[in-house]
């Protein structure tokens, strides 16, 4: 669930408030998000993907609230990982972030051929 808005990074663009599919945030007068309904968070990481300031941290646990340490998270380099790996925004032209999603079908096929694999099965993508 969403556990942290790094206030020192947030620029108050309200993108997260807008894109959150489950209405977790309220919008403060200055445009910043207020964590109003954390228990409704569906742990989808979409807010992080749309936050250009990399100011949001969604904890992986979707069942329980967990304590977070802002300083440790800032130091970890984890903020913005989804946006970077997705090759969005400033990463768009970076060839090391190109969209290789289409290779999924080939990966399934390799797994099927690997030792212990199920053999050539129906192509499968998720």
């Amino acid at each position: 669930m969403i556990e942290l808005v790094v206030e020192s990074r947030c620029v108050g663009c309200s993108a997260c408030v807008e894109v959150c599919p489950t209405g977790v945030f309220d919008r403060a007068a200055d445009g910043r998000p207020v964590l109003a309904r954390v228990e409704d968070c569906q742990t989808c990481f979409m807010c992080e993907l749309y936050c250009l300031a990399d100011a949001l941290y969604v904890a992986p646990d979707c069942e329980n609230r967990v304590p977070v340490d802002e300083a440790a998270i800032l130091a970890s380099g984890l903020l913005g990982q989804y946006r970077r790996d997705s090759g969005w925004d400033e990463w768009e032209a970076d060839p090391s972030k190109s969209n290789e999603h289409w290779r999924m079908e080939g990966v399934f096929a390799r797994a099927a051929r690997a030792p212990g694999g199920v053999g050539p099965g129906p192509a499968r993508v998720e």
């Binding site: 990481f45 990982q81 997705s86 090391s96 290789e100 290779r103 999924m104 990966v107």
Partner: peptide
Amino acid sequence: LLPQIQPNFGL
């Protein structure tokens, strides 16, 4: 290549 195939898998 996984982060480029499924960027959310590793999160």
